[in-house]
Amino acid sequence: MLGRLTPGACAQVTMVVNQQQNRNMATLKAISMRLKSVKNIQKITQSMKMVSAAKYTRAERELRAARPYGEGSVMFYEKAEVAPPEDEPKELYVAITSDRGLCGAVHTGVSKVIRNRLSEPGAENIKVICVGDKSRAILQRLYGKHIISVANEIGRRPPTFLDAAKLANAILTSGYDFGSGKIIYNKFKSVVSYSQANLPLYSQKAVESAPKLAIYDSLDSDVLQSYMEFSLASMVFYAMKEGACSEQSSRMTAMDNASKNAGEMIEKLTLTFNRTRQAVITRELIEIISGAAALE
């Protein structure tokens, strides 16, 4: 009987202690520890901001050089009025993200576009190639069977044409016979703004059946194939540059906000800390004074 009761009593005792601790939660020690940790977090976010600011300046400079490049490679598809073939429903989506987080909604934005498309009817003909671990992490759980390949080690260094060429090669040799597709990426507008955009992908068949292709002179399928392979690589390159720039700028903003929030927390905690310290001093004074008064 007693043995059975004891654990219950024990539990009650610890609860009382907990309650007492809760009431005295705001001890000086606890507050100063918390204050210190928030200060450390602020230091980290601040230095992350500095790093991404430096990376952003570089990415922005490189993006300015890559813009005409990307526009030039898409121009042909617009001018030739290439349209996705109607008898080939297979589509390929390429999500351009990176491995690194802590950068606002950059990766979620891209994944959301694809997720929305995949939740619509006709999704069974869509396959996805994830560039960067973040888009894979978001899409894998619900749409794992749509993902055909994943590229990682993206985002540590600025993207190069070699990376893009490797990716283009992977897309072409994936063994998936798509009729059309889209490269989904973040288009950089300014430091505070980016939006999801897409570049078109077409199969060679789609290009060959384009209505205005006939006006282009001296084409054979070899030239067209090499041309399309190269233009795929340059489009991927451009999309990666845009994505990298948006990511860095967004990380800069996110870390700036985090530092500001940490600053606010530090202010509040310092106030509580000082108040508590004052309360402790006052209490001790009262104790001393009343003790002295009792002795008189």
Binding site: Y69, G72, S73, M75, F76, K79, F161, A165, K212, I215, S226, Y227, F230, S231, S234
Partner: peptide
């Protein structure tokens, strides 16, 4: 080194090179 040339019907020309 390598790349593509596109001449469009509005006389715009795109020369895109790898390097």
């Amino acid at each position: 080194s390598s790349g593509t040339i596109t001449v469009n019907d509005d006389s715009s020309v795109q020369v895109l090179a790898e390097e």
